[in-house]
């Protein structure tokens, strides 16, 4: 069958570079650390059979340090996603309400910041927030403060950087959902005497909930494992799972513990990920795709 020729290369690639790494990750998470290169004893080997250990996963559960890191990551991701959603909602409403010409320009303005590169944008925040920086200069000029405030390397700076980096991810699904909505329902509600606020609360908001959920999760999922932004803008001691994993791997060279942390992060994210994928499938099924035809059927000419 010739179709297999198209199926086989990507399937083999995905098995080798997506499935196998996750399986190996699970294997290393139950392996014992050992000095050497690579620094662990495999959990399963041909000579010795099973030599796995649950020690790494137990360490995560018992040592408050890692549990706190996991919990705090979920909290930070939740706050970031909520802030993004609050900022993105009015932006998406504005984009959906704009004429077609304007809409393309506005979407480009939301997307173009990606092109400056993620790190220079963080660099800009460092430059703006440091003691002699722009923000402190403005605050001193306004008389809000006489001494520069320690803005950089704080939770506030971290959230600012996170929201700035992830905001476009929240705007896009919301704008797409709001664009697809049936405006006649809102017009009917307005015709029947509902005030703009009542129309928004009882029609627009409920209709946009799937988009809002997608926007929230699209920020929440990557933010939970974020490493670079807290590292560059957050307080040095801020404990997050991305940083803990990075530290175990690069500084302590404890690969099994890093793998166990990755497995724990995945376990925490599995429910949000499944919900997100469910939303995604629902969205594409509701989309413009025509029902698939059987190969034997004549193509319809009713277009």
């Amino acid at each position: 069958m010739r179709r297999a020729l198209v199926l086989l290369p990507p399937f083999l690639w995905l098995l080798l570079l997506v499935a196998a790494p996750v399986v190996i990750l699970l294997g290393i998470a139950v392996s014992e650390g050992a000095p050497g290169v690579p620094p662990f004893t495999p959990a399963i080997s041909l000579q010795d059979g099973w030599r796995g250990t649950a020690q790494n996963l137990l360490t995560l559960a018992q040592d408050g340090y890692y549990a706190a890191a996991l919990l705090r990551s979920v909290l930070v991701a939740g706050v970031t996603a909520t802030l993004c959603l609050l900022l993105a909602y009015p932006m998406a409403l504005g984009i959906a309400a704009a004429g077609e010409r304007w809409r393309v320009l506005l979407l480009a303005l939301v997307l173009l910041p990606f092109c400056t590169g993620f790190l220079p944008r963080l660099g800009a925040w460092i430059g703006l927030l440091r003691d002699g920086g722009w923000v402190n200069g403005v605050l001193i000029a306004l008389g809000v403060t006489t001494e520069p405030l320690p803005l950089l390397y704080s939770d506030g700076a971290m959230y600012l950087g996170m929201v700035h980096a992830y905001l476009p991810f929240a705007v896009l699904p919301l704008a797409a959902t709001l664009l697809r909505r049936d405006m006649s329902v809102e017009e009917a509600a307005a015709d029947l005497g509902a005030s703009p606020w009542v129309v928004f609360r009882s029609v627009t908001l409920p209709l946009s909930l799937p988009g809002a959920a997608a926007a929230f999760l699209l920020v929440f999922i990557p933010a939970a494992g974020e490493f670079v932004i807290p590292e560059l803008l957050g307080p040095p001691e801020a404990l997050l799972v991305g940083r803990a994993l990075w530290g175990e791997f690069f500084q302590n060279r404890d690969w099994p513990l890093a793998a166990a942390l990755a497995v724990a992060l995945l376990a925490l994210l599995i429910v949000p990920i499944r919900v997100f994928q469910g939303l995604d499938e629902g969205g594409s099924r509701r989309g413009a795709s025509p029902p698939a035809r059987g190969p034997g059927e004549r193509p319809g000419m009713s277009k």
Partner: peptide, 29 residues
Amino acid sequence: FRGRALFGLLAGAPLVLPEVVTGLSLLLL
């Protein structure tokens, strides 16, 4: 086809895996 569900799951996985997990698991591979 056989394995379609697995194929779809694997094709979507890199979109939702956190970067640190993708990086670490690929390194181990």
